[in-house]
Design a protein around this nucleic acid. Structure first.
Lengths: 315, 315
DNA sequence: CTGTTAGCGCGTTCAA
DNA sequence: TTGAACGCGCTAACAG
C-alpha cells in the first residue's frame, strides 16, 4: 500500500521527537497538552496508523485470536460467533477462523498452526473426542465453549436448566407422556446432561421416560423419532433444534400434527420453519459476549480461569 | 509464552551466523547441503518457529487477509468459505472474519479497520448497495464474491447458466407452466440476471412467464409464492434455496405437493429437508478455491485482476 | 558458500 | 516535559 508513514515522519511533521509521538500514541502521561494536541492533529490529518507488526515485535501480543468452530454452518455456534466477533474487534483483537469438523485431529493440526503463529488466545467450540492433553499447553489462553474441563476456562450452556424449563412448560400444558430425542452420553453436555435432566424431571413428576439417543444429526432425528412414539405420547422433547428439525420432517410426512414438540435451541431458521415448537434459547449471544470477555481478561492477566454458565430462556 | 527462541539462538546452537539461519528458513539458495541440514535439524529439534511480526516488519506482508461475509449463517457463503479457509491456510495466510449484515455502512467501517491494520487482502461477499467508491482503494487487493464490478477481480456464479439448466430440466420433464420466484433487480446477480435468464428461456420456448420478485428472505418466499400460483402452474423455479425453503413451507401448509420445485443453491439443509426439489449447485466450493487462488495471486503480484465465473451443475 | 553489518517501526530506558 | 540512543527478530547488502 501507500500507508508508509512512520512515527518518525509524524515526529518530523509535528516538530517533536519520535518518543513523544510514541507516548501520544499510547496515551501515556508526561506529555504537555499542547504537544499532545499538535501531534494528534498531525496524525489525524495524515491518517497515520502505527505498524502492528512493529508494535507486536516490541511488546508481545499481536492481538490476534483464533476461533475454532466445529462447523461453519452450525446454527447455534453461528449465533455465538455473531456476538463474539464484534466483542473482539471492540477490544482491538482480530479473530481468525478455523473449522474443526468435529475432528480431534483437525483441532490438533489447527492448534499447531496457531502455536507457530504465536497467537494470543483461542476460543474453541468443544465436542466429543477432544483430547485434553492436546489442549494442555493452551490452558491459560483458551476458552472452551459449550463444554467444560478441569483447569480450563469455559462458557457453557445450562443444559439441565434448559431441559427443566421445557419439561415444566410441557407439564404445565398438561402433557404426561413426554418422549425424549437426544444424543449419546459420550457427548457430556448435549448428550449426558440433557438426558439426565429429562430423567430427573420424569422421576420427580412421576412420568414414564421414553427416550432414544441417536446423535446430533438431523437425519438421526428423522430416522429414530418413530422409536419413541407410542399412541399415548403427546409431546416430544428434543435435545437440539437440529434433531427437532429432523423429527419435524418425519412427523410432517406422517401427517402427525397432534404432537407438541419442544427443543433446546432457538435459531432463526427454527423459528421460521416451526414457530409452533416450544424452544429455549440457551443464550448463544450472551455466551459470545462472555467468551470474548473471558478470553481477553485471561490474555491481559486481569481475569482468572472461570467456568461460566449461561442461563437459558424460554422463547 | 515459552517459544522465545530466535534465529540468533538457532545460529548459536548450530554454530553458524544468523543470516545463514535466515537463508535456510526462506529456502534460499547459496547454502551448502550439510549446513542446511544441520540448521534444519536444530530448528526441528528446538521446535523453532520464526516471529511473524519480525518478518512482517522486514518484508511488508504479514500474511493476513480478511473475509467479509454478509451473514455468518448464510448457507451458500458458508459453503464457499468452507473451502476458502483451507486454501488460504495452505498458503500461510490467516483469514480474519467479519460480517457485513448487508450493511454498506458496516462494510465501510470494517474496511477502515482493515486499512489501519495493513491487511494484505480482502475477500468480500457482495450485495446490493455497496458503494464502489469505498472499494476503490482496495482495487488491487480485493476479490469480490458473487458479484462483479469494473476494475475488480471477482468470482461469480453463472446465474444465467444455472437458471438455464433448471429450466431445461423442468421443460424436459414436460412442464410448460413454470412460475418464477425471485429477487428484485436492484440485486444485479441473484435478482436481475436470474430473472432475465428465466424470461429468456420462456421466450425461446414459447412459455408464458409468471413471476414475482419479493426479495432474498425465506419469509418473502413464504409470503409471496401464492401470487404466482395458478391452477395451471405445474412447476416453480426459485432464484435461491432460501426462497425455495420459504415457498416449500407455504406449499406444505396448503397440502400442495403436486408442484415441482426447482432452485439454485444446493445446500445440505436443502437436500435434507427437500430432496424432491431439483437443484443446481452454483459451485460454491470451487468458488472458494478460485477466490483464494485469485487473491493470493494478486497479493504476490503473479496474477492480474480476473473476473472468474464458476459453472453450475445439476444435482 | 558464509559471517558481519545495517536497518525496518516501534517502545523503552536514560539524560537533559 | 522531552529527545537521543538502544534493541526487539528478522532480512538484505556487503564483505570475506
Amino acid at each position: 500500500m501507500q500507508s508508509r508513514l512512520t512515527i518518525k515522519d509524524i515526529a518530523r511533521l509535528s516538530g517533536v521527537g519520535k518518543s513523544t509521538v510514541s507516548r501520544v500514541l499510547n496515551n501515556e502521561s508526561g506529555v504537555s497538552a499542547r504537544t499532545r494536541e499538535r501531534v494528534e492533529a498531525v496524525m489525524q490529518q495524515e491518517g497515520f496508523s502505527p505498524s502492528r507488526s512493529a508494535r507486536a515485535m516490541r511488546g508481545q501480543s499481536d492481538k490476534v485470536v483464533a476461533i475454532i468452530v466445529t462447523r461453519l454452518d452450525s446454527l447455534s455456534e453461528n449465533l455465538a460467533v455473531q456476538t463474539l466477533l464484534p466483542s473482539l474487534y471492540e477490544q482491538g483483537y482480530d479473530p481468525i477462523m478455523m473449522e474443526s469438523q468435529f475432528s480431534p485431529k483437525l483441532v490438533e493440526e489447527h492448534l499447531g498452526v496457531l502455536r507457530r503463529r504465536h497467537i494470543d488466545g483461542v476460543i474453541l467450540f468443544g465436542f466429543t473426542g477432544i483430547n485434553e492433553k492436546i489442549l494442555a499447553p493452551w490452558q491459560s489462553t483458551l476458552v472452551l465453549m459449550a463444554r467444560d474441563a478441569k483447569g480450563f476456562a469455559s462458557v457453557c450452556y445450562d443444559d439441565e436448566g434448559a431441559i427443566d424449563i421445557l419439561m415444566a412448560r410441557l407439564y404445565e400444558q398438561g402433557h404426561r407422556q413426554i418422549s425424549f430425542l437426544g444424543v449419546p452420553h459420550s457427548d457430556v453436555t448435549t448428550g449426558f446432561r440433557r438426558h439426565q435432566a429429562y430423567l430427573a424431571f420424569c422421576k420427580s413428576h412421576a412420568l414414564t421416560p421414553n427416550f432414544v439417543l441417536p446423535g446430533l444429526a438431523m437425519k438421526q432425528g428423522y430416522d429414530h423419532v418413530a422409536e419413541v412414539l407410542t399412541p399415548e405420547t403427546t409431546a416430544l422433547l428434543c435435545a437440539t433444534d437440529t434433531l427437532a428439525l429432523g423429527a419435524s420432517k418425519y412427523l410432517q410426512e406422517q401427517q402427525n400434527s397432534a404432537l407438541q414438540l419442544a427443543s433446546v435451541g432457538s435459531t432463526p431458521l427454527m423459528k421460521f420453519l416451526h414457530p409452533e415448537i416450544i424452544t429455549v434459547d440457551p443464550g448463544y449471544a450472551e455466551a459470545g459476549r462472555q467468551a470474548a470477555r473471558q478470553l481477553i481478561g485471561q490474555i491481559t492477566q486481569t481475569r482468572d480461569l472461570q467456568q461460566i454458565v449461561i442461563p437459558g430462556s424460554l422463547q
